[in-house]
Write a protein that binds this DNA or RNA. Structure first.
Length: 639
RNA sequence: CGGGAUGUAGCGCAGCUUGGUAGCGCACUUCGUUCGGGACGAAGGGGCCGCAGGUUCGAAUCCUGUCAUCCCGACCA
């Protein structure tokens, strides 16, 4: 390809809308253009990158025995209703774009394809003899993200490879899961990316085991925690650790464990209490009041007790609440600190001012939530409005009149502690769980705290967790039978008995991966693509297009390299040399061959983009020099 | 959704306070000179000043509304 024919439009100034380096560079170098918030056109250069990434993905998926397909993006609501994900994905902060067709049928644009594929599997897979099967596709996905950002990093339309496997038993699922794990490691390494596999939360997809693949980069949206010995790596959403030892409360239990009441005027935060009374944060139990919103209208107040020096992990909390109530009340739509705005919006019959916020204890009385009396009016206009259009049949919000009490072990394990006095401006010192009496009894004691960098590792307390940031480019799940049961995807096993299929699913954000590569491989002058996914492997630059000797030699080399199967670009523009060098650096072609002053004597210059290493060689030696270099680069990371 | 900011030529910006009919740099076109790290000179082309109302003799500028985009947040009572 000739640069003169490439529709190359590079920008000298950074576009104001771009924050992180990869986003800026993709815009400046003419790889993408924004069409709407979170929606981008992939220009010819980027399309070549995406195709190269896709090819690597295909080779590895095919090599692992998977079958390529292409599934519809437009999907009937009915399919999603059957899996139980329709309202979770469309109501509230749901991320599915959805619409009604001319017949009034509801449809959604696929954010993922579990439903469609499982329905197909139900249709096609009948016998254990057909199993296992692993189907994949590479295509656009649609997610109405709360906040699209960073270009392709979090777009609303993006390219994804997703694969779904079906099995006769769990052992077979684990086998394919392991094969995908290996395939993924090869894919990222072949793309030239440094990636780490981390334990992950399964989130809305559901299922048991899951692992994310993170490209390490400063601009990553995820915090990952790893041990120095490499034996533990997890997303902070999921990470576990040993908390620090608490500082024992001087004096221990007081007043038989009921605690001694202390006036704490206006001191409603851990910091205030510590400053005013010299308490250590680890001597306190903080009590957080949240409200969980369920699909069927249940509004469940949740009281979480956590040691004062610890931080609540939202994801763990949401999982715990879903585990306890999801089966009965449907999808968890959200869980947020209880606030007046929400109460007003949903017309909940609750007076926040009766609650001593900031001074709560684990034994807060259920009666403060009021009695089961007036119910929310089903035809309340506010509720209907907040539910949004096309949401016929939205459940009425109903407040549960008792707390769901959850306690983190860091709090449960304290012998004696300080906590809120359940009255404004008072706390209690020297409280024990036994002393609080039956009201404080937790519905569940379970891990709800966020592991922090510096925490001791579970597998080896001698090691401490280290933090780094990562961009999630892949995620593999063992789904189990969640979808197959919901959608009745069943097969006949060896003994003639019908049972639900075991499933796994495996995603790679192809367009995100391309940007992650830029994030990991760039410098002050532009992008430094790994050879294996670069839009072109080598660029021949004619330093002076007015010099016919240079042009002739460059054209010869260009033809020869092309004939040798190299993805080569020829910069034949009548620009000055400096402009062409700048552009070559910016768009990030890994190797540059300059035909310039030495052309008369048959000498050219070969420059490696990333390192700037330069060597002068005879034009006749170009092919033999370049071929092994490119061959090595095409393998991706070599170690 | 809450908070903050911004919409003026393809990109980056000025002009707005104090209303008088739009400007700078880059990019683009033509010509000349130049030619190995974003050249120089000359001459050009391109803008319902986001959109809709209002005030005014007159609005990019003032007022109201609206739309869009970006940033921070959805975190502790």
């Amino acid at each position: 390809m000739r640069v003169s024919r490439l529709m190359l439009v590079t920008l000298r100034d950074d576009p104001a809308e771009a924050e992180i380096p990869s986003h800026r560079l993709l815009l400046r170098a003419g790889y993408i253009r924004r069409v709407a918030s979170g929606v981008y056109a992939y220009l010819p250069l980027l399309w070549r990158v995406l195709q190269k990434v896709s090819r690597i993905v295909r080779e590895e998926m095919d090599g692992a025995g998977a079958l390529e397909t292409l599934l519809p993006q437009l999907q009937p609501a009915e399919l999603w209703q059957r899996s139980g994900r329709w309202s979770g994905y469309t109501a509230g902060e749901g991320i599915m774009f959805h619409l009604s067709d001319r017949q009034g049928r509801e449809l959604g644009l696929g954010p993922t394809h579990e439903e469609v594929i499982t329905a197909l599997a139900a249709d096609l897979l009948r016998s254990y003899r057909q199993l296992p099967v692993n189907l994949y596709q590479i295509q656009s996905k649609f997610r109405d993200e709360i906040r699209p950002r960073f270009g392709l990093m979090r777009g609303r339309e993006f390219i994804m490879k997703d694969a779904y496997s079906f099995h006769a038993d769990e052992a077979s699922l684990k086998e394919t899961y392991a094969a995908m794990d290996q395939a993924y490691r090869r894919i990222f390494s072949r793309c030239g990316l440094r990636a780490v596999a981390v334990d992950a939360d399964s989130g809305a997809i559901g299922g048991s085991a899951s692992q994310e693949f993170m490209v390490t980069a400063e601009a990553g949206e995820d915090l990952i925690l790893t041990s120095a010995d490499g034996r533990y790596a997890a997303n902070q959403e999921r990470a576990v650790s040993l908390p620090n030892e608490p500082i024992a409360l001087p004096g221990g239990a007081r007043c038989g464990g009921a605690g001694e009441v202390v006036a704490t005027p206006g001191q409603s935060s851990i910091e205030d209490l510590a400053a005013a009374h010299g308490f250590a944060p680890s001597q306190l139990v903080k009590v957080l009041l949240l409200l969980a919103r369920f699909e069927d209208g249940l509004r469940q107040p949740v009281l979480v007790s956590l040691r004062g020096d610890q931080t609540l992990n939202d994801v763990k909390l949401a999982n715990a609440v879903t585990a306890r109530l999801g089966a009965e009340h449907g999808a968890l739509l959200g869980i947020d600190p209880l606030n007046a705005e929400q109460i007003r919006q949903e017309r909940l019959d609750l007076d926040l001012s009766t609650l001593p916020l900031g001074f709560l204890g684990p034994d807060l009385d259920d009666r403060l939530l009021g009695a089961e009396s007036r119910r929310t009016d089903a035809t309340s206009p506010d509720l209907r409005r907040s539910a949004g259009p096309g949401q016929a049949g939205v459940a009425t919000a109903t407040l549960k009149r008792s707390f769901l009490r959850l306690v983190d072990p860091t709090a449960a394990d304290l012998d004696a502690f300080i906590c809120g006095g359940n009255g404004v401006d008072q706390h209690r010192v020297g409280v024990t769980w036994a002393g609080l009496g039956p009201t404080a009894a937790a519905d569940q004691v379970l891990d709800l705290r966020s592991a922090q960098p510096g925490d001791r590792c579970l597998h080896d307390p001698g090691q401490r967790l280290e933090a780094s940031r990562g961009i999630e480019v892949g995620h593999i799940f063992q789904l189990g039978r969640k979808y197959s049961q919901a959608l009745e995807a069943r097969f006949t096993n060896e003994s003639g008995v019908d049972e639900a299929l075991w499933m796994g699913c495996y995603g790679i954000g192809v367009s995100r991966l391309a940007q992650a590569a830029v994030e990991q491989h760039h410098d002050g002058n532009g992008i430094c693509w790994p050879v294996s996914i670069a839009p072109f492997e080598l660029i021949v630059v004619i330093a002076n297009a007015q010099d016919s000797e240079q042009v002739t030699l460059a054209e010869q080399l260009y033809s020869m390299l092309q004939a040798a199967g190299i993805d080569v670009l020829l910069d034949d523009r009548s620009e000055r040399a400096g402009v062409k060098f700048k552009d070559a650096d910016l768009i990030g072609i890994p190797w540059r061959l300059v035909v310039g002053r030495g052309a008369a004597t048959g000498e050219v210059e070969l420059v490696e983009r990333a390192s700037r290493d330069t060597r002068v060689l005879a034009a006749s030696d170009v092919l033999t020099t370049v071929q092994p270099l490119l061959a090595a680069g095409r393998l991706g990371l070599t170690n």
